[in-house]
């Protein structure tokens, strides 16, 4: 074997990787918060009695869930400027992640909402709660609690999926890796290390979401 591994070649460029990780984290946090918000609205629309809105949301969900994230990203970044919507790399990446997660979380949260027994809602109505109150306290919170594990995995998947944002030159972790291997030609070593970084990030994210879930749902129960 002629090839000698040289992981030391990455060390001088460690700042690029840290910057990349920060940007990946930023993308993930914004994407997750807004995306889940969009998913909640979508699920509400799907569950509402207005068939037109429900169908429009349904089409959105199916379109996104049945096309690759990379194509959605290219469409937003390269395609939308033709309609006069110009976005920076970061904006396009965030938008793609929001739109993507929005569709998946709509479907996940809807499943949680469908699992709420009708009697709960009727009981809330008999307590004279209005529609918004019922949705917030009786439908949404228990539904979110039920589907939190599924939602967490989806957020992790979106975080991992953000690695393709390097293709539109959004300077996240994979972009940093590409940049470094273009300088020192140590492609395998760089990608090996970055894969490890992604693994650490996904484990941390999963743990963080678990803690967040405990905080959001366990405490409220006693209120």
């Amino acid at each position: 074997m002629a090839y000698k591994f040289d992981f030391g070649a990455i060390v001088p460029h460690w700042e690029l990787l840290v910057d990349g990780m920060i940007l990946t984290a930023e993308l993930t946090v914004i994407g997750a918060v807004v995306g889940v918000g969009l998913g909640i609205m979508g699920a509400w629309a799907r569950a509402s009695r207005a068939p037109v809105i429900s169908q429009i949301v349904g089409v959105y969900v199916e379109l996104i869930r049945n096309t690759p994230f990379l194509v959605q990203l290219f469409f937003i970044f390269f395609g939308l400027p033709a309609l006069g919507v110009k976005l920076t790399e970061f904006q396009a990446a965030v938008l793609a992640m929001i739109v993507n997660l929005g569709a998946y979380s709509t479907e996940i949260i809807r499943a949680g909402i469908l699992a709420i027994p009708q009697g709960q809602i009727e009981a809330a109505q008999s307590l004279a709660m209005n529609r918004v109150q019922i949705f917030r306290y009786v439908v949404l919170l228990p539904a979110l609690k039920k589907i939190w594990p599924a939602l967490s995995s989806q957020i992790v998947i979106v975080m991992l999926g953000s690695s393709v944002c390097s293709q539109i030159a959004a300077e996240e972790l994979t972009f940093g890796a590409n940049y470094i291997q273009a300088i020192n030609f140590r492609a395998f070593e760089v990608y090996f290390v970055v894969t490890g970084l992604y693994l650490v990030m996904s484990i941390l994210l999963r743990m963080g979401l678990k803690v967040l879930g405990n905080y959001l749902f366990e405490r409220r129960r006693h209120v």
Partner: peptide
Amino acid sequence: ELFQGTPLLMQLFIVFFGLPLIG
């Protein structure tokens, strides 16, 4: 855990750049 916790893109990169290293 490894394949569900890392991006598919990284997996492909490692295969693409790693297999040539073992000949």
